[in-house]
Design a protein around this nucleic acid. Structure first.
Lengths: 212, 212
DNA sequence: CAGACTAGTGGCACTCAGTGCCGAAAAAGA
DNA sequence: TCTTTTTCGGCACTGAGTGCCACTAGTCTG
């Protein structure tokens, strides 16, 4: 077989000049320096040493650049969910997956933070993010539907998708607002609110006058 | 005082040629006929008999046209919430407000349905909607924070905002998928899932193998 | 090695959304 | 009539995104 020798250039045709990751990184750099709106696609392309036309072959829009390879992240999450114990409750499994999905090596945390700061604050990116979140919700509701034995478009999987997304984003917003908080802890407390906070009489935190 | 005589033209300067409502309606008409992407802003402007430049004074973007006067809707909801009995639980009050917010006179239902069909299916509109939803969530979390006596940016009001939005949109998605369903009923069942479905051991619907 | 084949590149021209500028139009008031 | 106020809309410009197409840099075959 000796494929190793060809691993550098295993296929025909011209080699790509760059990668999605490199472009995403270069773009993020510029967005942080000058701001998202102040950076044109031309700026990014020339910073990365490629043509503007080429950039649009790597990413369908300027808005997609900060997301990098989100599809791969989703695949990771899907795999994690598929591997959970089938006797685990759907909510437990999803809670574990959400935590896992958002765990990053410590050295990447500051980078991730700046990225999420852009995604959750720049209006154009906030808007565009919805499309990515829809794919994320799809992973969640596909899993829920499978485990519950109902159709994906039934109301339970749909609500579950929305509600887990909501809890995750609430935790992210909280994380970005504070300086030294731990994302995982915030996710856990948001998920606790989901599981216990909305049942009447279970938690005083959502009763009038209540406190945490 | 006799302001009545001037009610037709109570202020100085040239009279507006049209209204936000009329433009929103004209645009929606075209979007339904040819599709959102296939309709240019020029098309809408000339259909409404105004200049393109003028249209952008009524609406900040093409994406805003289908929303009409959403700010007024939000004000209605805020007023409803403010008028709720202070002894009512936050979740009860919000559930009632969500139902009220989405009640429409029967003759407007088909129109509302087509409008929501666009908003929830055209990618550009789906993305843009996020910004409107953020304002909606703000109304919810402002109310929750006030009643709970916590800061608006605490985690509980944030999660509550997200989760009620999620439940509402799940109901909408369900409504649009089926032909003869009742939006209010769907909202109610989504809210039931919120309140009872996520507490362990309370509902079999989110346990493995469970059904509805 | 020449030519065929394949895949990535990027220039050019175009469409369309959105904006700044500014003069014209339409109303009210003195 | 002249001034003030407000809306209108043309013009020109920026910037994202797309279709087209020739070019480049590789591999493969004879």
């Amino acid at each position: 077989m000796q494929m190793n020798e060809r691993s550098v250039a295993p296929r025909m045709g011209r080699q790509p000049l760059t990668t999605r990751a490199a472009l995403s990184h270069a773009a993020l750099q510029l967005f942080l320096e000058r701001g998202f709106e102040q950076t044109t696609v031309d700026d990014i392309a020339s910073a990365a040493g490629i043509g503007r036309r080429t950039l649009f072959r790597y990413f369908p829009s300027k808005n997609d650049l900060p997301w990098g390879d989100f599809e791969a992240e989703l695949a990771r999450m899907r795999a994690f969910l598929a591997a959970t114990d089938a006797t685990m409750s759907v909510v437990d499994a999803l809670a574990a997956a959400v935590i896992e999905f958002n765990r990053f090596p410590p050295e990447e945390v500051p980078y991730h933070r700046e990225r999420m700061n852009l995604l959750l604050n720049v209006p154009a990116l906030v808007a565009h993010s919805t499309l990515r979140y829809a794919e994320w919700r799809r992973v969640v509701s596909d899993f829920a539907a499978g485990r519950l034995g109902v159709a994906v478009d039934a109301i339970e999987p749909t609500v579950i998708g929305w509600v887990f997304l909501g809890a995750s984003l609430a935790a992210y917003e909280q994380w970005l607002r504070t300086n030294d908080s731990d994302l995982i802890e915030l996710l856990e407390s948001a998920l606790v609110l989901l599981r216990e906070g909305f049942a009447p009489g279970r938690s005083p935190s959502v009763e009038p006058g209540g406190r945490t």
